[in-house]
Every structure is written in structure tokens, then in C-alpha cells.
Design a binder for these strands. Sequence first.
DNA 1: TTCCGTGCAAAGAGTTTGCATCTGT
DNA 2: ACAGATGCAAACTCTTTGCACGGAA
Lengths: 148, 148
Amino acid sequence: MNASQRLESLFARLKERGHRLTPQRAAILHALVEHPGHPSVEELHRQLLHSFPSMSLATVYKTIAFLKEQGEVLELGFGEAGCRYDGRRPEPHPHLVCTRCGAIRDCGPQEDRALRAMLLELADHAGFSLDHHRLDLFGLCPNCRKAS
Amino acid sequence: MNASQRLESLFARLKERGHRLTPQRAAILHALVEHPGHPSVEELHRQLLHSFPSMSLATVYKTIAFLKEQGEVLELGFGEAGCRYDGRRPEPHPHLVCTRCGAIRDCGPQEDRALRAMLLELADHAGFSLDHHRLDLFGLCPNCRKAS
DNA sequence: TTCCGTGCAAAGAGTTTGCATCTGT
DNA sequence: ACAGATGCAAACTCTTTGCACGGAA
């Protein structure tokens, strides 16, 4: 599913629920889905100010909350200083976080199947159902490894 | 390594570094290591007030920060409202979080080896070194499954 | 006696909320 | 026109910090 398809389907859901498609909302959705990395709220807001000089941080927060509900964005809760978001792959997937430079890299989807199986097994052992998960790996990125 | 051994070795490290072994510190260490669950800072503080009616939250935070440095406690960063801590198994391990009642359960160490192998592989694929990780599974605990 | 630790209060950061105004539909 | 969205500022929560006093070594 590409970005414009996702935007379209999301807009449809917005309408269904009696929500409005404001220019700000469209811009936030767009920024999230198009962003290649893992932006913070501040980052998104700063970026959005270019096209909407009066856009408030609160609006960004509110819209992101809505998108989380809709499963259109993944919230990454590490970073210790503000959440980061992933609008491109909203389903949970592992992230690699460099403890030196702070870079965040997605893990490829190669091992997804094996990982899912393992997580299901873990949950099952304890009698839990599994809804979603979070997996973050911390270490040094290739650059910082070289530098050390 | 049992609780009293850990306390002892930690006390030794404190001394080495020129740190003091105050009654408050001992109490915080003790409370963390003895706690069977995943207490929040507030919870620990409340509990500690019984024996130290004047103990401040700041002291608990400061001491926990020190213990994190020392690798004596694991910080669990979910919960959206305050971190939780695990003083019994300071090494990273999976946690199951009930999205209804908030219960937090440790995963058993059964699959530890397979999991570690998988995480190392994930990190390696991206050229990262692996220092530590965090794995949280969200779903319904057995009780809440029954109730639903 | 000397620092380190403590406790208090104030400061900080990130996020949420209340409310008047504005605007899609 | 009406319900929902926006923007602003204030409020809130968790955590950290500054500083004077107190206590372990």
C-alpha cells in the first residue's frame, strides 16, 4: 500500500466517522507518511510550520493521537526525550537505536515471520493473548563502531 | 546470585567508588531487590515512607539512577505514565503487559537463548553492535481474557 | 572534619486540556 | 448552521536540579 492510497483510505475513514478533512490534518498525515525517518513531534511541527505558520503543537499532538488510534502510525516510546513516530510501517517492527549518535534504523522485514512466531510462543506460555509488541535493540551503528 | 549477595557486592562497589552507605540507600536497594513485581518510583517511595517518613522522591530517583548505572536494576520504559523497575532480573528480558488491567508479567527464561540469537542476527544484519534491548509484548492477561 | 547524600522546592520537558474562535460539510 | 477542529495558553505529570543542612567515614 503506497502513501497516496493510505492517505485516501484514511480520509475515507475520517469522513465515515464524521471527522473533517482540514488542510492541517492532511498536511500532518502527509508529513508522517512521507517522512523517511522517525520524526519527533517537534520535528514534524517545525517542518509543518513552513506551510502552516500558525499550526500549533497541540494540533500535531491531537492529530497524531488520532492516527495512532487508526493504526496509521507507530509510536516509538524510547528516546527518553519525546516519542518518535513511524508513519511508513505502522505495524510493530524492530528498531535499532545507536546509543552514541541516537540514529534510529528500521530492521528489515526478513526475520518477521520467525520473530512473530517466537513472540506468539512467549505470550502463549504465559496465557496472554498477543495484540502488539515493541522490540528495540540498542547498540552502536556502523559509523559509531568505526569511530570508537 | 541471591538478594543478599547482590546487596553485599553492590555495597562493596559503593565503597570502592567513595560512595556512602546510608540507611536510605540500603532501604531503596532492599526494596527494589525484594519487590516481586515491577514497581514504579511512586510505589517504592510510598513503601519506603513507612520506614523513612521523611524520604524524598528525589532521593529515590537519584538512587535508582545510580543503580541503573551499576546494572542493578532494569528500567521498563512503557507504562506511558512513569517508568517501572525490575530489581530482580536486571538483565533485559521480555515483559508481557496486559492492555486492560495493566498487569506486568515477566516472560520465563526458557526461550532466552533463541531470542538472543535472533536479536544478534537482527543487529548484525544492519551492522550494529548489540548492547542491550527491550522487548515488550502487549495483550490480555489470562484473567482479562476470561472476563472479555 | 570532609564531602557526599538528603530533603525541599523550584525548574524542566513533554504532553494534555480548556476554551474561545474558526471552518468543513 | 452545526459539530468538530484549531490555536493559544495554562495545567499536568514525571523527572531533574540547586542549594543548604545533616550525617557517614
